[in-house]
Amino acid sequence: MRADESAPIRVLIVDDDALVRAGLTLMLKGAPDLHIVGAVADGGEVEGAVAEHRPDVVLMDIRMNGLDGLDGIEATRRLRARTGAPEVVVLTTFDADELVFRALRSGASGFLLKDTPPEGIVEAVRKVVAGEPTLSPSVTRKLIAHLVPEEENRRRTDARQVLARLSEREREVALAVGQGKPNAVIAGELHMSVGTVKGYISRILTKADLDNRVQLALIVHDAGLG
């Protein structure tokens, strides 16, 4: 959670294409509640830039041709392993790119296609800061469909074992998260307060050893319950 909710959302852009970096910077500067704190061209520069600029959100390209060979997936994994890491939204050109699925498992809070309209990118940044994922259900289904059957079966078994560690009420909340429902809707359907829903989600993430609700949603999908 950000220390000052009224302050502009600090955004770091990571992309090896100078035109994309410039375009995203120009685009996001038009939103009064966003502040671009930096833009780097290589996955290897991410941790240093985050330490220097302390962004709330990192917009991370997946495929980068940096000199150190560090792509967006590995950069995301390393970043999210840090205490107090910012949220990560990965960027891709293809809506059926399996690399995006791997990036989400590395701890990203969602992804955007690079042709997303400016208002969509701004809204996505706001959502991840508020704890809401930026996943498109149609794209998520395509990504899951790309998994080979053996891998899908293994993931289903592992996911069901994770969910089996939850209480009945926790599984109800997890299923609702997997269906893409926001906290307010979950609260209404399960007859609890939004604060209680947040508490359940926090406990579920701890029990399942997950970083965020995006990964929880993927677990539910993998279990065949989403």
Rank of each mutant, 00 (worst) to 15 (best):
residue 206 T to L: 13
residue 42 D to C: 14
residue 143 L to K: 05
residue 46 V to N: 01
residue 67 L to H: 12
residue 108 A to K: 03
residue 65 N to K: 14
residue 124 A to S: 15
residue 202 S to V: 01
residue 50 V to I: 12
residue 38 G to D: 11
residue 78 R to G: 06
residue 80 R to W: 00
residue 125 V to K: 08
residue 121 I to P: 03
residue 8 P to H: 07
residue 75 A to T: 05
residue 100 V to A: 12
residue 215 Q to C: 08
residue 33 D to Q: 13
residue 47 E to G: 06
residue 22 A to I: 09
residue 134 T to H: 05
residue 87 E to V: 03
residue 66 G to V: 13
residue 96 A to S: 14
residue 21 R to F: 01
residue 8 P to M: 03
residue 210 L to G: 04
residue 114 K to C: 08
residue 48 G to E: 13
residue 90 V to K: 04
residue 83 T to A: 14
residue 81 A to G: 09
residue 30 G to N: 14
residue 193 S to E: 06
residue 162 V to N: 02
residue 139 V to P: 00
residue 197 V to Q: 02
residue 77 R to I: 09
residue 144 I to S: 11
residue 39 A to H: 04
residue 160 R to G: 05
residue 151 E to M: 13
residue 203 R to H: 11
residue 53 H to L: 04
residue 83 T to G: 00
residue 81 A to K: 10
residue 216 L to E: 02
residue 196 T to N: 12
residue 113 L to D: 08
residue 216 L to K: 07
residue 207 K to E: 10
residue 168 E to T: 11
residue 215 Q to T: 06
residue 130 A to I: 07
residue 39 A to N: 03
residue 120 G to Y: 04
residue 18 A to R: 14
residue 113 L to F: 12
residue 36 I to R: 11
residue 51 A to T: 14
residue 55 P to L: 06
residue 173 V to Q: 05
residue 199 G to R: 12
residue 58 V to Q: 07
residue 68 D to N: 09
residue 48 G to R: 11
residue 146 H to S: 14
residue 97 D to A: 07
residue 121 I to K: 09
residue 130 A to W: 08
residue 199 G to A: 06
residue 89 V to I: 15
residue 120 G to N: 07
residue 191 H to E: 13
residue 36 I to D: 05
residue 101 F to H: 12
residue 80 R to C: 13
residue 226 G to T: 02
residue 2 R to L: 08
residue 105 R to N: 14
